[in-house]
Nucleic acid binder design. Structure first.
Lengths: 251, 251
DNA sequence: ACAAAAGTGTTGAGAGTACACCCATGC
DNA sequence: GCATGGGTGTACTCTCAACACTTTTGT
């Protein structure tokens, strides 16, 4: 504990802004009575890519963990909500917007960032990769989808405790899909989709095969999807019936 | 966003310690290149009290929200883990120790604390009230169990967004108990307990009655509990068989 | 004796799982 | 015509929910 007794009034004293030196006009400092951990947000964005689960990562071009993959994320701005901070950082670093993020939890082990005590609030999501363009945000990093196989079995080493975050996020995603209404808030498939596409998403997330008949009958029995009449997706083989989520605006 | 481009190196510059004035030796200040939200932890500790769910709260004796009830909690110290901070604050403010806390999530709405941007990481737990002594921590607050009825229907107004926290915590607690192994990490009952006592906990958490036969047979079918031979609790009526959790050390 | 809590089985409905074959299309 | 993915039904098992009466003790 601190030697000095911490009082609320003193802890909450307003930050003092001043210039550190005459020749650095941009260097305003923020001062508090007690130390504050840095607060960051990270986003674990999943997608289905080539029949495999993939995560949107950036490659760090700066120390620490230079050259390693990391989750898009960054510092929470003054008077910014956590979710907005995560959306902003995701957009800045990967170009991905229009995402619904769900909170995963806070990660605050004092040693998780070698630069100092940093607490990160993690979010997760699932999106259709084809519906979002990925662009590297700045020269400090480059963004790309990285398949789960590369993440899990070594080739793509993750910075900080981000390997833990993506593991936890996948478990939470599985719990979401176990729920009959688990698709709400997650962009698992395009607005119109075939049941095989949806099944592919489930199989990638859970890492195992599902029985086609059981999968389809459960969806229909739970009244989650409805066929879109006179719309069939053409392809190399027999065209598949298109569906949409039921009780959701048509989009 | 900030006008200045935020770089990692500058954000992580070490805090500068100095004395604000010559006659206040204890007033060391901490300075950062960018504003940092205050980081706090809060603990939602449930118990069963008089057949009703209750939450361990403190009554605030200071502004803001003077006189209102609030969750025990406080600021995270330098290089302190989130869970340890919550345990420390819980012990300081209520005297309750030896608790297993589980993380609920982070609450970071910029307006949630009128004193300024404050992010709180919430934890929850369930304990046997009789096994823990509650003592007010200091003159800034007094600690007490407050029944759910008082919390929900008005008499006990909660400070900040703590009404939301306890609601969310109860939902998470219900999800935990739905899990066949939901009791792990939660101190629902004493080491030796009757099935009626355990059922009472479930009924308080879910707010509805369970069928006695179904409740008992499910527990036994799932191999969760085992009878403790030659041990029966005496009372006003027919003595009840005592049980203990299976596959858990005897305690 | 009676009040109060302890204890005990069966039945029906629904969900989940396992399983195999024909269909429509592109090449 | 053949390769490829699309599409369909049944039987079994297991879990969950509903349901009432007897037993044991203290007073």
């Amino acid at each position: 504990m601190d030697g000095a007794r911490r009082t609320t009034a003193r802890f909450f004293s307003q930050p003092v802004a001043f210039r550190a030196s005459a020749d650095d006009a941009s260097c305003v400092k923020y001062t508090y009575e007690f130390p504050r951990p840095a607060l960051t947000v990270d986003a674990v964005v999943f997608t289905l890519r080539a029949n495999d689960l993939a995560v949107l990562l950036i490659r760090r071009k700066k120390a620490p963990h230079k050259g390693k993959f990391a989750l898009p994320g960054g510092f929470v701005d003054a008077n910014e909500s956590l979710a907005n901070a995560a959306l902003r950082e995701l957009a800045e670093e990967t170009g991905v917007t229009d995402v619904t993020l769900e909170q995963l939890g806070a990660y605050g082990d004092p040693g998780r960032d070698p630069r100092g005590h940093t607490v990160s609030v993690a979010f997760f999501s699932f999106i259709v990769a084809e519906a979002h363009e990925v662009t590297a945000g700045d020269d400090a990093s480059s963004a790309a989808w990285v398949s789960w196989a590369e993440i899990e079995s070594g080739p793509a080493a993750l910075a900080f405790d981000h390997a833990q975050l993506v593991q936890d996020a996948r478990v939470r995603l599985q719990q979401r899909l176990d729920d009959p209404c688990g698709h709400v808030g997650l962009e698992l498939v395009p607005a119109r989709f075939t049941l095989s596409e949806l099944q592919g998403v489930y199989e990638a997330v859970f890492g195992r095969a599902f029985d086609k008949r059981n999968f389809r009958s459960r969806l229909l029995a739970q009244d989650l999807v409805e066929a879109v009449d006179a719309a069939q997706r053409t392809g190399r083989h027999r065209p598949a019936q298109l569906y949409r989520w039921k009780n959701v605006k048509t989009q």
